[in-house]
Write a protein that binds this DNA or RNA. Structure first.
Lengths: 127, 127
DNA sequence: TCTTGACCTTCTAGTTACTGGAAAGATTAG
DNA sequence: CTAATCTTTCCAGTAACTAGAAGGTCAAGA
């Protein structure tokens, strides 16, 4: 499988697939005589794992940990749960943040006439 | 007012205050004989305006626009409202995203025992 | 007067996770 | 045979700062 086939199978851009090997997140693939990268199904599975982890917002370093656990027969689910719980808390923190931003901004936007005149509660609030 | 006084008054780190002048977001301040930056109240007010705008998540470029409108007697509130509404929609989009991430991840975390055994629905889901 | 500590300056480089583009070689379809 | 579509490497850019180094300045206390 060359890199574009692997990229399609994994659902990641070619550049990203290369990048993940560059930073050692996945093992560097073998090469053809001409230097083309050869990917196999196992590598693609790891790339998919990383893509899904990234979609949850795990950092690259967390993906590295998770991938390690994925491949570790002796892992404990508590290690996985710890990482996932941490991410969940971050998400909840971000949600609270966004909620208060939303409420404030929505209020300002609603109270702004949005006409040709300069008076504006949004500007008043910021200034 | 030297930079640290301005920084305190504006609620921004010294480095950030310098940075905002470097990128031309605010006018470069005048200098003392020794080359120290001198800030006045008007500059501090602009820095506060930028800090508040940034806290709402407006990009630097949007802050530049908003600051322009702030200082423009001939602005129309519709211009301000357009920028703010755009940001509000982004926030709402992000909220929807986070909500679905949250629900999925919370479900997985709940269903993971978190014990010494390797079985883990989180890993199963990602792999 | 000297020194010490807290300022200030500029400059470079690092952060996160890619992404774009250039230059050049390989492969494939027609 | 050629044109299009791969592939490679390498360099640079993104956003918005932030860290740190090397060195100049200033005010207060001994």
């Amino acid at each position: 499988m060359n890199i574009s086939a692997a990229s399609k199978a994994a659902g990641l851009p070619v550049k990203t697939v290369r990048y993940y090997a560059d930073i050692g997140l996945v093992q560097a693939p073998s090469r053809s005589e001409a230097g083309y990268r050869n990917y196999d199904d196992a590598s693609v599975r790891k790339l998919v794992f990383i893509r899904r982890s990234r979609e949850f917002g795990f950092t690259i370093e967390e993906c590295r940990e998770l991938l390690g656990l994925y491949q570790d027969q002796d892992r404990t689910s508590s290690e996985v749960k710890r990482i996932a719980s941490k991410r969940l808390e971050e998400i909840e923190e971000k949600q609270r943040e966004l909620q208060s931003l939303h409420d404030e901004l929505a209020h300002l936007v609603t109270s702004c006439r949005g006409d040709h005149r300069p008076d504006c509660p949004i500007i008043d609030y910021l200034g």
